[in-house]
Write a protein that binds this DNA or RNA. Structure first.
Length: 548
RNA sequence: GCCCCCGUAGCUCAAUGGACAGAGCAACGGCCUUCUAAUCCGUAGGUUGCAGGUUCGAGUCCUGCCGGGGGCGCCA
């Protein structure tokens, strides 16, 4: 019996109690069945009686008693206890609980997928790095979390497009071009320019493509350095993200907004909406009408559009391309943008509460060194991957919520020991594979039988309960935009598996031992666990090795 | 000055308004001729920064303090 089926049974019991006249209350939209923290509280529990007590005008324990007596009659339910203030603690019969192993194996990679967000069309923007330099630690957290969220939203039924906005326009690119040209000429980094080994490397690559670079006029040379440098850097960033197992559906160019006239068009459309005004020779958007603390300039007195104008055009592009929901994942150093971005949505006629969602991630610290944007000595993502490895970095970032500052020890992350939860989880997966491999050699086959009632050991009912919780965890992580819940779940699951492995042997001890349904049924459970570990790791973009 | 985030075990951090606040690491003590011991079992560790409030119930929500981080351009 799955938790969903149990929730349905509770609803039936509730409706029955109302029909019988014992209870006068409307059933809530959702009946939540959750896994209690303590195993002493059964396989599943619900606080439905506590929630309904007030509306029913009865003490919660009495409501719980009414439901408990009806639930005890449900097939597959072994025991129902009323505990504490009015919790219903439910224990399933082993056969009923064990059926889950078969359901999971049969569902395969789709187990955990759910329809919680079905029908939602979402644009998810994250990383959005400038192509003026390599990705660094400041982009890494959102790369890991954004890609995981992309997968989670999709697994929960949303139609989601992952998008990267490339700031390939404006003065910063001129500075990049000037910096590359200076490096090519062996000159010092110009004032306000970009420095570092990567600029020298870009200069080398541009020179290789354009050996005549230094013979061109300065204007031409800067233009070449700018265009080629930008393209080369962007490609390198794509490659790095690829190595980090982070994938985008759309790479959106800021420059395309300018070139297509979309920026000018956006200003016009916002003006039609009545939110644009002229002052001091500039064109402004009255964002203060929608909660911003000051109005923002769209077009400078010089006639140049601001970065903000491109932001507005980009928002409208997302709207025009058919995304009702737009999620922005921004670093803490951009939290000042929240109000103005929401104001853009409001000025465009959207509802800021429904159509735009801005997630702010706090900065992270690795190896004691603060790595913010635009600071020297920043550690590049490519170096992080080389130093620590993609899987440990992704997992370590994905297992913490985004809104708390993080302080990680790089040396601990690369250690292949239990300092490192990623190896704990991956090892559990490798172990399930090893058990399955050896069981197959012994001649144990799932196809020869399955008796779920044999999966009644204490560690088995605990493991089954965790396995049954997976779809709810996925849905919750997607809804709350909190991928770390999946990682925490996997650590719990790995622990339950290891404990079971320690107590319950899958394979025959000796070759002469007869192979029974007990071996086969346990293999089903082993394989179900393997599937859930693999599905969960996949949602986080982390590998599930078969051997370690 | 205004705005956002955080404050939980020695350390790094969990915990939809629910039951006795949990993991890992570090410390101490156990289990390998055993499906790989990267596992498992046990001990110890807490006034959830402080003070009020909301309610059946607060680490969680509200108010005010204290402490830490970040942000407040016709920069990008």
């Amino acid at each position: 019996m799955t938790p969903e089926q149990l929730a349905a049974a509770i609803r039936t019991a509730l409706e029955q109690a109302v029909t019988d006249g014992d209870l006068d209350v409307a059933a809530p939209a959702e009946i939540r069945v959750e896994r209690p923290r303590s195993r002493e509280h059964g396989d599943w529990s619900t606080n439905i009686a506590l929630q309904l007590a007030k509306a029913a005008g009865m003490p919660p324990r009495e409501v719980a008693d009414l439901l408990a007596e009806r639930l005890r009659a449900v097939e597959g339910v072994a025991a129902v206890d009323v505990a504490g203030p009015g919790f219903l603690n439910i224990t399933l019969e082993a056969a009923s609980a064990g059926e889950l192993a078969r359901s999971i194996v049969e569902a395969g990679t789709s187990y955990g997928s759910n329809d919680t967000l079905a029908g939602e069309v979402v644009n998810l923007e994250f990383v959005s790095a400038n192509p003026t330099g390599p990705l660094h630690i400041g982009h890494t957290r959102w790369a890991a979390l954004g890609d995981a969220l992309h997968r989670l939203l999709a697994a929960s039924g949303a139609d989601v497009t992952a998008e990267h906005y490339t700031n390939d326009a404006g003065a910063q690119l001129d500075r990049l071009g000037a910096s590359i040209l200076a490096a090519a000429r062996g000159e010092e980094t110009p004032e306000g320019g970009y420095g570092g080994e990567y600029v020298d490397e870009l200069a080398r690559l541009v020179l290789a493509e354009h050996p005549d670079l230094l013979q061109l006029s300065s204007d031409e040379a800067v233009a070449v350095a700018r265009e080629r440098g930008c393209a080369l850097q962007l490609q390198q960033n794509k490659d790095t993200l690829d190595a980090f197992n982070v994938h985008f559906d759309v790479w959106f160019s800021e420059r395309s907004l300018h070139d297509s006239g979309a920026v000018a068009d956006a200003v016009g459309r916002l003006r039609e909406q009545g939110h644009v005004f002229d002052a001091d020779g500039a064109v402004w958007l009255r964002t203060t009408d929608f909660g911003d603390d000051r109005d923002r300039v769209l077009i400078r007195a010089t006639g140049e559009p601001t970065y903000f104008a491109a932001d507005a055009a980009y928002y409208l592009s997302k709207k025009d391309r058919g995304f009702p929901a737009k999620i922005y994942m921004l670093g803490a150093d951009h939290h000042g943008y929240v109000n103005r971005l929401k104001a853009i949505a409001a000025c465009a006629g959207d509802d800021p509460a429904r159509h735009i969602e801005i997630l702010i991630g706090q900065l992270i610290n690795i190896r004691g060194e603060r790595m913010g944007r635009r600071r020297g000595n920043a550690l590049f993502l490519s170096e992080l991957i080389e130093w620590i490895g993609s899987d440990p970095v992704r997992y370590s970032l994905a297992r913490f919520p985004a809104d708390s500052p993080l302080d990680l020890d790089g040396e601990e992350l690369r250690r292949r020991s239990n300092d490192n939860p990623v190896f704990y989880v991956q090892y559990a997966h490798a172990r399930t594979c090893n058990v399955a491999r050896l069981a197959a050699e012994d001649g144990v086959s799932r196809d020869d039988g399955f008796d779920p009632s044999l999966l009644g050991h204490e560690t088995e009912s605990a493991l089954l309960a965790v396995l049954g919780d997976f779809p709810r965890v996925v849905a919750q992580a997607a809804t709350l935009r909190e991928p770390h819940r999946v990682a925490r779940y996997l650590e719990d699951l790995a622990g339950r598996y290891h404990k079971w492995y320690d107590e319950c042997r899958v394979r025959p001890v000796e070759a002469t031992e007869e192979i029974t349904d007990l071996h086969r049924s346990r293999l089903w459970l082993n394989d179900a666990t393997r599937q859930v570990l693999a599905n969960g790791l996949h949602l986080l973009g982390v590998g599930a090795p078969e051997r370690m």
